[in-house]
Design a protein around this nucleic acid. Structure first.
Lengths: 154, 154
DNA sequence: TTGCATGCAAAGTTTTTGCATGCAG
DNA sequence: CTGCATGCAAAAACTTTGCATGCAA
């Protein structure tokens, strides 16, 4: 557990949400100005395989890292890509049963599931209302529900 | 609807599973040897925004494209990254209720969910059994359940 | 001391884009 | 004809890696 690894872990735990490697890099850099992105990636990988943090992939190109390692669901904003924890407990019986059904039908060995709610976060809802009759581009994005190509950093 | 777009769509629909852009490119190339990867990406994007196909992100770095556009769930192999359709109907009442709960608690405008089952596909199950006492590396990968860095093409 | 982790830079992988040309409407 | 889509190649975005150096045990 080097100084770098410790601080990377601290900054992720402190972040509260699900930052990208680059976002963590920027935070850590304020405390360790000479740290490199490569070290951040290497340590995040290490922490993931040690089970100290989680790794997420969403509709956006970048990996995101998760301070929590217990089972929980997420909710994703289709407009800005933000991922938050869904404030509910993981489903038990009904979905375990489904896992078995799906396992039998597909011949997969199923051992879990991921549930992700999708929608627009409150900030993006506000932005859309505000621009509803002003910027046609925003409307279009809203209609197609297509995720933007690159992340809009919050 | 150019010749290229038509053939890209055909090859995706015919694929049955959830290919990457590169896999589609290789298929299409057999019929249109001079087509470029850029054109494949551009047309896939277009088809997605027209709602004719779907786009997926899983635990692997590449985008995957989906011939189906109706609501359905997926099952992912953590060993090889393959994504298949889960042969069950989308949940209705119980989960719609959850969507509302999550929406209220998070202030998101929630309009849907994605459910993904995770496990090992039958091929990868077989490979693991076969190598259980032979290649320690395979065991390790199995234990950590960590996805490999790069895709193992099927 | 010894070896693993780091910083740095280069390379790898996937996706996007600028531009001149060509085909579709 | 006219303009949008293509092919090509370069660039961009993100992630991984080789190597010499430095820090920790």
């Amino acid at each position: 557990m080097t100084k770098q690894r410790k601080i990377i872990l601290e900054e992720l735990k402190k972040h509260g949400s699900h930052p990208t490697a680059d976002e963590i890099y920027e935070k850590v850099r304020k405390r360790l100005p000479r740290i490199s992105l490569g070290t951040v990636y290497r340590n995040l990988d290490l922490l993931v395989s040690e089970g100290l943090i989680g790794r997420l992939k969403g509709d956006y190109p970048q990996m995101r890292f998760d301070p929590r390692t217990d089972d929980h669901y997420h909710i994703t904003c289709l407009s800005c890509g933000k991922i938050e924890d869904a404030p509910i407990e993981p489903l038990q019986d009904p979905i375990r049963n489904l896992e078995n059904v799906v396992g039998h039908l597909t011949k997969y060995g199923v051992f879990g599931h991921k549930l992700e709610f999708v929608g627009f976060c409150s900030e993006c809802l506000k932005k859309q209302e505000g621009s509803r009759n002003e910027t046609p581009e925003a409307m279009e994005q809203e209609e197609t529900q297509g995720a933007p190509k690159r992340e809009v950093k919050a």
